[in-house]
């Protein structure tokens, strides 16, 4: 247990260090003056550590100051707006997190139970229906799906708005960055209208992201259930005359879920990519939309920080999930001797 934790902690730290190093070296690889690429302007008054980093002659010392500057929130300023990147990102990041969270929750809540249904009905009609429809869902490119949704639901039927996070009518003060939480915290007059508006903005982006994730979760859960159901120990439990519900809750459920968790970890990078694409299409004011804008505008400091941050998030979430799945799996050291 402790060794697993330490191993993953080390892994995360090392990977993050490499990411920081890469982002630092980006400043030298981008065209133009490396100092300007790092700072975002010729001089910044209120970011002393980062400014000091630029002034060092030794690259290693520069890097050392750079790391310190990162920890202190001195991330440079944007070429395009001249505003500090740290504040920009902290504004935008919760929006991305909110979208991903709802999309993943939706995909999990539907994907895993339906995966169980499908797996338990292996090769029956329901299973075939789920399998073929999830295959179709899985093969939709996310940008195409988003555009189709906009075309049908927003433009043709005019049911839902096609872009943004909230209608301009409402002025919600930024508190947590999560729009639904912020509305709940604010003291504006007609809250339920604001809620309604926020949710109607959320539906299409969330659906677009969760569509593919749903298909993936359904398929992996189903596979895992089918594998478990055909094992010897389930057969053996049946011959002991245990009831079907007993077998399901005590033996199938846990054994089928255990291998699904690491599969979710693998899905995180795909998910982040999809979220960024969907943000761009729906003009969702999140980190993805912002980063792609930065790439268009060759805003090198923004690209450097944004990419580093997104990569860090993917790494931290993936490795933590993997670590968690190792910790809760009682069979983890089943192959310990083989692994060593």
């Amino acid at each position: 247990m402790i060794t697993t934790l330490i191993r993953y902690f080390n892994l995360i730290c090392l990977t993050l260090l490499v990411l920081v190093l890469l982002s630092f070296s980006l400043a030298f690889f981008f065209p133009g003056d490396s100092a300007v690429n790092l700072l975002g302007a010729a001089q910044i008054a209120d970011q002393p550590l980062l400014s000091q980093a630029v002034n060092q002659s030794n690259v290693l010392v520069q890097f050392w100051y750079y790391v310190q500057a990162l920890f202190n929130g001195q991330w440079g300023v944007s070429f395009a707006t001249g505003k500090p990147l740290y504040e920009d990102i902290m504004q935008l990041f919760p929006a991305t997190l909110e979208l991903s969270l709802y999309a993943v929750t939706l995909a999990l809540v539907f994907g895993i139970p339906l995966g169980f249904v499908s797996g338990l009905q292996y090769r029956k009609k329901i299973d075939h229906a789920f399998m073929s429809s999830s295959m179709v869902m899985y093969s939709f490119p996310v940008f195409w799906l988003a555009l189709i949704l906009i075309l049908l639901v927003s433009l043709q039927a005019q049911w839902l708005p096609m872009s943004g996070r909230l209608s301009l009518l409402y002025d919600i003060p930024h508190a947590t960055g999560f729009i639904l939480v912020d509305i709940a915290l604010s003291d504006i007059a007609n809250k339920q209208y604001a809620f309604h508006d926020a949710i109607s903005h959320l539906i299409l982006p969330t659906l677009s992201v969760s569509f593919i994730a749903f298909a993936v979760f359904l398929r992996s859960t189903r596979r895992s259930v089918v594998d478990v159901v055909s094992t010897e120990y389930i057969k053996s439990a049946q011959t002991r005359g245990l009831t079907a519900s007993n077998i399901f809750f005590k033996h199938i459920l846990r054994n089928a879920l255990l291998p699904v968790l690491p599969l979710l970890a693998v899905q995180i990078s795909t998910l982040v990519t999809n979220v960024m694409i969907v943000e761009t299409i729906f003009s969702w004011p999140g980190i993805g939309d912002w980063l792609i804008q930065a790439i268009y505008e060759r805003d090198y400091p923004a690209i450097r920080t944004g990419i580093m941050l997104v990569a860090m998030i993917v790494v931290v979430f993936t490795l933590s999930l993997e670590c968690l799945s190792q910790l809760i799996d009682p069979t983890r050291d089943r192959f310990a001797y083989a692994r060593r």
């Binding site: 010897e232 053996s236 011959t239 005359g241 245990l242 009831t243 005590k250 054994n255 069979t331």
Partner: peptide, 27 residues
């Protein structure tokens, strides 16, 4: 099921495969 529960008991050949890997012996 009722017959298998009370009257007939079976020991399969491969004990490790016939035991749920994620449940303790007690359970």
């Amino acid at each position: 099921q009722a017959i298998m529960r009370r009257d007939i008991a079976v020991i399969f050949q491969d004990p490790l495969a016939s035991l749920d890997p994620s449940a303790t012996l007690k359970d």
